[in-house]
Structure formats: C-alpha cells, structure tokens
C-alpha cells in the first residue's frame, strides 16, 4: 500500500443512533408483515392450525378429560394458546434461516444499519402474528363457551405475559435458525423442542395424574408455569401471582442465555 489513498468525499455516519436503529427495526418488521398481503395463504397458516387445535382438543378429548367438552375447554384453552404461541416462535427461526440461505441477510448486513435490526425486525413482526393467533383462538373459544372471568385486565395481562414469553422463546429458536443449514431442519429441531416441552406440562392435563418422575419435571417446566399463569389470568381462578412471577423469571432467564448466544452466532458468521 505504497500509494497515497484519497478518501472518497462522503463522510458517512459510522455510528448508528438508537433512534435510527428503532426505525430500521420497524422497517424490517414492515417487510415481514407486508408479505402477508401478497401471500394470503400465510394468514391461513396462522389461522387454520390454531382453530384446528381448539376444535380437536375440545371436542375429541373434552368428554374423557373433564366429563364434557365445555368443562375441558375451561381448562385447556389457555394451554392450547400457549402451545400455539410456542410453535409459532419456530416461524421466526424459519424466516431467519430463509434470509440466511437466500443471501438476503448478507444484503441487509452490507447496509449501514444497526446490526441487530434484521433480528429485531423479525421478532417484532412475529409479535404481530402471535397477537393475531391469540385473538383468533380466544374469540373462537369464547364462542364455544369459554368464560373469561378474569375480565379485560386478566386477558390483557395474559396476552402481555404470553407475548413476553414468546419473545424470549423466539431467541431460543433463532439460535436454531442461525445454526442449521436449511429451513426444513428448523422445523424438525423446533418440533423436537416444543412438542415434548408442551406435552410434559400442565397445558393439557393436570400434572398430578403423571408418574412421579414426570410430575417432578412438569412442576418445574416453564410451560407449566406459563399455562397456569395464562389460565389463572383469563379465568380469574387459581393461583396467579406465583405462576406469573415464575413465567417472567423463566422468560428473563431464557433471554439472558439465548440473546447473547444468538448475537454471538450472528457475529461468528463473519
């Protein structure tokens, strides 16, 4: 490098201000939501599965589980909502992985934008989708006879808690999305993670019918705490404070562990 270098006469802002980062996150969230406009099937995906789960669980299992579908719905709807929210976090990882394998992430990373904006944009957009599924399931449940005795504050609290937990959880799946080589594998990994997690919890049945060893796990399973908290808040019955606190602690714990891991994996790609 013996020759003199003349700097090109652009003096770009090398540092991205937080406000700009926020706007970039919003722009990227817009990008992930506007797709629905061109691909209405995606809205179907977000709707069909939740509706199916609510109907199947209630009418198929209801009678045997609780004596009547109606009685089971009171117990299971919050659990079904929780399960659906956790499954939906896999979409976040899928989308990230598609961006990664298609080179879109490279294009974004070559722009002078906040490093975390592509990740945050996705998480924020998927919050919107989560909210849609939640409202759909709750609405359908209420039509089927679910009593929201927790009232508006209960429902809002439950929604907030659920979304907070889903955001934390999506960092766990984002790590999967960052590490696997193709989108299909995200689903496989995610399924293996979420399916056992929700079934070994109190989401669908009370943990006290399980064998001792399983029950011991179910009692500490974060999904149990979350399902109990959402159920308590929505139906206005049962203990609420404990499960809510534990859910928040779990969410915080997951975030504290996985956000840095994801960011490290993200940087390691360079």
């Amino acid at each position: 490098m013996s020759t003199v270098t003349v700097t090109v006469d652009v003096t770009p802002a090398a540092k991205i201000r937080p406000w700009d980062g926020l706007q970039q996150t919003c722009t990227l969230a817009w990008r992930n939501l506007v797709q629905i406009k061109h691909n209405p099937m995606e809205l179907m995906d977000l709707s069909v599965q939740p509706i199916m789960f609510v109907l199947l669980f209630t009418y198929v299992f209801g009678g045997q589980m609780a004596g009547s579908p109606d009685a089971y719905l009171q117990y299971a709807l919050p659990g079904i909502i929780v399960q659906n929210a956790l499954f939906a976090t896999m979409n976040t990882a899928m989308g990230l992985n598609i961006d990664l394998t298609k080179g879109v992430l490279d294009r974004l990373r070559s722009l002078p934008i906040a490093r975390s904006a592509p990740l945050m944009g996705r998480v924020v957009a998927d919050l919107g989708k989560q909210l849609w599924s939640l409202l759909l399931m709750l609405g359908l449940g209420m039509l089927m006879g679910f009593d929201v005795d927790g009232g508006v504050p209960g429902v809002l609290g439950a929604a907030g808690l659920l979304l907070a937990f889903a955001v934390a959880m999506s960092w766990m799946t984002l790590l999967i999305g960052m590490l696997v080589s193709e989108p299909e594998k995200v689903m496989t990994f995610g399924f293996v993670l979420v399916m056992p997690l929700t079934f070994t919890s109190s989401a669908f049945v009370r943990a006290d019918t399980m064998p001792g060893w399983l029950r011991a796990w179910a009692d500490v399973n974060p999904v149990t705490r979350l399902a109990d908290a959402v159920r308590g808040l929505m139906t206005g019955s049962g203990a609420v404070a404990g499960p809510v606190m534990w859910s928040l602690l779990w969410a915080a714990g997951i975030a504290v562990v996985f956000v840095p891991l994801v960011m490290r994996a993200y940087r390691a790609r360079s």
Binding site: V6, V10, N39
Partner: peptide, 29 residues
C-alpha cells in the same frame, strides 16, 4: 474508500453496494 473494512466497517457499508453471487431478493415482496 479509504476506510478500513474491519475497524471502520460502518463507514465502508455507507459507501458500497453489493450484488452477491446469488440474487438476494426477498421473494415474497
């Protein structure tokens, strides 16, 4: 453009454009 690609990555990004080997467009948009 006179900026170090590691230490001044932000400044470099502000003045480069990249067309990768495989078209990196968002297919859904």
């Amino acid at each position: 453009g006179g900026h170090d690609v590691v230490r001044e990555a932000g400044a470099v990004r502000a003045l480069v454009g990249l067309t990768g080997q495989y078209a990196a467009v968002d297919e859904m948009l």
